[in-house]
Nucleic acid binder design. Sequence first.
DNA 1: TTGAAAGCGATACCAT
DNA 2: ATGGTATCGCTTTCAA
Lengths: 348, 348
Amino acid sequence: MKREPPTILDVAKLAKVAVGTVSNVLNGKVPVSDSRRRRVQKAIEKLGYTQNILATGLRRRRTPMVGVCVPHTSVAYFSALVDAFEEVGADRGYKIIQVLTQLDPAQELDRVQALLHYHVAGLILVPSIQPDRTLKALARSGTPVVIIDRPTGTDIFDEVTFDNRGAMFDVARRLIALGHRRIVLIVQQPKLSTTRLRIRGLREAVAEAGGLAAALIVQCGPDEITLTSRLAELLRQDDPPTAFVAANNTIAAWLMRALRSLQVDFPGAVSVMAFGEPEWADLVTPRLSVVRQPTGEIARTAWELLIRRMNDEKTPVRHVELKAEIVMRDSVASNLPRAAGGPKVTRR
Amino acid sequence: MKREPPTILDVAKLAKVAVGTVSNVLNGKVPVSDSRRRRVQKAIEKLGYTQNILATGLRRRRTPMVGVCVPHTSVAYFSALVDAFEEVGADRGYKIIQVLTQLDPAQELDRVQALLHYHVAGLILVPSIQPDRTLKALARSGTPVVIIDRPTGTDIFDEVTFDNRGAMFDVARRLIALGHRRIVLIVQQPKLSTTRLRIRGLREAVAEAGGLAAALIVQCGPDEITLTSRLAELLRQDDPPTAFVAANNTIAAWLMRALRSLQVDFPGAVSVMAFGEPEWADLVTPRLSVVRQPTGEIARTAWELLIRRMNDEKTPVRHVELKAEIVMRDSVASNLPRAAGGPKVTRR
DNA sequence: TTGAAAGCGATACCAT
DNA sequence: ATGGTATCGCTTTCAA
């Protein structure tokens, strides 16, 4: 018994007022006399009237929804971000439309364009490797946008990122101080801006150590098996790497499983760190050391910037860079020759 | 330089045709002569025209979006579902709007109502503990709905669930066969339909074992600390429980950490199982045994049912129940007196 | 086939 | 403060 939902006209008729008056009651911007307001409210109640956002959006040329575009939600970091946005956004009366890029620039463009068709009020984007066309479309649309996590290298969008270079630098420095000489960074997407920054941080730390240390970037394949064989190869060579850094929790999980299946003594022979903090970081043995991204703060800041831009089209562009926190646990151990059971890293 | 986006009118003007013709080209339902079609397409290209979905939706009284309402995405099971929907939905030209209930019936109602304002073409819902008002609103709206994961006990919506009772029954039976006599099910929401079914399965298995075994339902608090102290209490009593089943990956993580901090010999003294399959299940020691939900199949089936209902308003209601898979790993061990190092459960 | 025109449900302006 | 009306961008008759 699907009856057509009541419209503002039905309400106006029942309350014996003009449609404009109903609209005014609804939006509360223009004053309405008490008596009429009550009549309208009663009518709304009785009819079970609900606003049609499509019509409102069409007229207002803007909808109270914000698009959020992330790679996928299987990386804990991203799902945490989405959760945070849903929460903070709802408080301000915005709905979140979530779309996924699956790491594919073409899909990214497609999905973002779809969001633009909806005339979303704003858009939060974690860009892919090749976001150029997407960014162009975004710029052309004039939609308020905040880029998060991955700097675009442009100056047209607000950005909230965290200091990947610095974090990686600190991590590498600590590893080197612990006696590690060959450090491997395992990444999924070498061309990603974030990845490049991490590589830079790593190289800088290595350079600082003079000829002592060396860095190696490994691109993991699409699955665990590829990574495992690549790893086996690496560890077979003479003077094999002793420290591994995984770019996210998925890779970290693959890496740990690979090390186990290869029966590598861990953290005895090799140390491991990861970006992101999966819920299992301190459940596994050895407990995983991580670079903890300031997820909540990123979400909050991004939302603030977005609100600001949605309110004022031409407020100056801002780039906010937050600091990540390094959390050392058992998966990182000393590699100093004299210190087989020697000085341990601080645990927490 | 935000210029107004071109409309169908601009296209018509440039192509020197009527707006209706442009619309026909766009939708491809009504035949259009080749020459005009080309002119229209060229104009669209040139102007960079994109359809305004709000207007289309208003006119058609339906939008190509499907709402997905889940508790949150930090439980891997739910984020996997959302990912699956985004993928399968996009293929059919639907966008997914995701909203979260945060386990709160009031928030659930609010969010679902918002989705209804958008006149979504369909809605997929993982209901909360108290979904009555939401379900009523949904029924009233006439929107195609598919309920997943948690049966509602009504016959007005299509449902895709999996056999929680059966899965729990099998799990309990195996545990009992392994010599466990006191089995604890740790849940977050005792009144949830899913939970009730699991409890029933557990009770049935216990009953089957005669006076041999006993079941205990523990409601964990909102955080790990509460659970830890509750657990300590349980384990302190005489004849303490030897098997624990966690309702999801979050509780499983809490449970494992709690057991460690309480220094319980595990899986020596107690065995552990969990519903859901977190990425860390086989990373932890001992590797976690789980009830693996058929996530992909649930998503696929739900989508099929939704499509079916979106196409045919009054196709008969269907309830599909899928089977879950029990995956035994090291976290479950024998509790038979004679079998300290005795018969092990099959591993995989 | 094609063009003209009537809405879809709301907002916002203009008189009153 | 209130009522009447044009309008948002598009689909969908209805004639031609």
